[in-house]
Write a protein that binds this DNA or RNA. Structure first.
Lengths: 188, 188
DNA sequence: TCCGATATTGACTGACCAGTCAGTTTTTGT
DNA sequence: ACAAAAACTGACTGGTCAGTCAATATCGGA
């Protein structure tokens, strides 16, 4: 019965996103999840590990969303474009989760160990980039910087679309444009 | 004698950057500045307004750095390139200040009013972009999105250079490359 | 020099909160 | 059905911290 565990994680995500970590007492998380204060600490050793678990959960959901229908046999451009669209789709579909994941990634609330582990899960992405580099497809930069640029551009695209409530055609156009700008930039 | 005021701001910047806002008690700020607890509240109504003032201070310093030797009569590309180099120069020259400014910009610790005011100070930048748009120089996107992309790319460039301790030629090459990638992306 | 105004001090207060634990309820195995 | 284990409860504790304020020090004008 990890039902309560899920409820606690869900409550944490809601409250952390809306109020910020420092403004959400564990007591409120428990209440929001419909359990007693003490119960939270049966499932999570401390508030710190709760944060770690929330972060892992979000990263996992994000990864899952990104990888759905991934074109394993597509071209590099198709693969990156797929990630582009799916990432933005997730960001707009789950704005609170997206914002929280971003905040957690910057703040040093997440333990080094967890951050390390999450980084390793992105290895497949680096492979794609390295392959593109080998083909002379990209401007000569490190895969690391390529990844950083991609994330930076994606974040900006999501933030803009979100702030302006873009929908339907306007949204599609925006996503396409944002990708084109990125692609033209990193491509020879 | 706003000497103490400056000391308090400086101490706040140091401690906020190193320990995080929520982990630095006002008492420690006061001690670090060499004054008593109560004195801090003579200069700043509350911890919240202290944060506002810190943010304004950082933005102001940043703006000042950016605008030094600004090529008023240069081409649009020269002007944006100038901002590019100066921004990165500031980020690498004052890493703690840069990190703190970024953190504050994301967190909602800064009051809406101050955030608003700071936004207005960037008006001159929007003018440059609008001019470029009118000339058909840029891809057709809003000046707002252009600005977001620029900031996103700059942040990535600073973060990368900072993490890898780039210096001298390697640094110059990196800055140039980062600008080229951005410019090629947003330009027709 | 003297005095009122202003700045500074730091012990103190009231509120908050992470984490505990003794007691209670629920589950599990036989 | 029963007992032992496991899960759950929430009042409580020890510690922290923003902001106060009465007492003290410093300053500036006459």
């Amino acid at each position: 019965m990890n039902d309560k565990r899920t409820q606690l994680l869900e409550a944490s995500i809601d409250l952390f996103a809306d109020e910020g970590f420092w403004n959400t007492p564990t007591a409120r998380i428990a209440r929001h999840a419909g359990v007693a204060t003490g119960t939270l600490f049966n499932y999570f050793e401390s508030k710190d590990v709760l944060i770690d678990e929330v972060y892992m959960q979000l990263k996992h959901e994000w990864m899952h969303h990104i990888m759905q229908n991934f074109p394993q046999n597509g071209t590099i451009k198709e693969q990156i474009e797929h990630i582009w669209f799916r990432h933005i789709d997730w960001g707009l579909g789950f704005p609170r989760r997206y914002a929280l994941k971003q905040q957690l990634a910057l703040s040093d609330l997440v333990s080094d160990e967890v951050q390390q582990r999450q980084q390793e899960a992105l290895a497949f992405g680096f492979e794609i980039v390295e392959r593109g580099m080998a083909d002379g497809l990209f401007v000569p930069i490190s895969a690391e910087y390529f990844g950083m640029l991609m994330v930076a551009n994606l974040d900006a695209a999501v933030q803009y679309a979100s702030a302006h409530h873009l929908k339907d055609m306007a949204l599609t156009r925006h996503i396409t444009t944002s990708f084109e700008i990125f692609w033209r930039g990193v491509t020879n």
